[in-house]
Amino acid sequence: MLVEILYNEEILLHYYKMGLLWSLPSTIEAGQFLMFRVSDGIDPFLRRPFGIYRTISIERGSKKLGGVEILYKVVGKGTGLMAGLRQGHKVDVLGPLGVGFSGFDGDGKLIMVAGGVGIVPFYLLAEGLANKDSRVQLLFGGRCKDDLPGLLDFENLGTEIKISTDNGELGVRGAVTELLKKEVSDDSTVYACGPKGMLKEVARIARERGVPCFVSLDKIMACGMGACLGCAVKVNGRKSRYTAQNLSPYKMVCKDGPVFDAEEIVWKEL
């Protein structure tokens, strides 16, 4: 689907927000993503996956139109080209795709653990829970204070936030998982998105404390819709032999995820 770029702004060094004129179904789940075709040609070749940060609405003349905002970090060729795209330009997107976060039923405390650009799936969640009675907490970690994209948005929502930075510039010095160790309690549900090492440690802490934990995984994707079987992740609890009766030992991050129950993932093979 071709959609118009409403804005594409650098919010922090290497971090951008892009607004797209694209009305999505209202049923979108936090953690779902879209597949973005960076080039009309073949370089870069594959589409790139990006989480949906939030939905927006704009006025055009007398009309109110819906849109979505993505928040991305420039890490390579594709995102580098994206940073140069201008307002008014049309881009090809597919989505919303995948299965988002849904394990928290409103009881106890929801702890969202984000590392850097891993903040993306949490805005929709925090927004949805902002005026409810639920206890929600964001633990946000980055390398430095400029590695905490979207922080202001969460402050504006009034989300309870605890910050960690590697250099101690903002919040506590150290890893965000150290914050989790302090904040987690028996009635917590943990949601996490960020680098692989962080997710592993979050899953370990949650298991140790016996609390539910859901993670959003990042795998290189080609189709984004479960057709190519390229984004496989090994899951637990399957019989050793895959037969017509026994389920496959692999799930697809694009279709079965990107959000998984942390207990399901074979972490040593991720």
């Binding site: 073949i42 070749f45 795998k219 290189i220 984004c231 496989a232 090994k234 895959y242 692999y250 093979e269």
Partner: peptide, 16 residues
Amino acid sequence: EPREGNSPPRIVETAA
């Protein structure tokens, strides 16, 4: 019989 396929990573982008 069903096949489980190879261990990931299973795909990588290359020139064209």
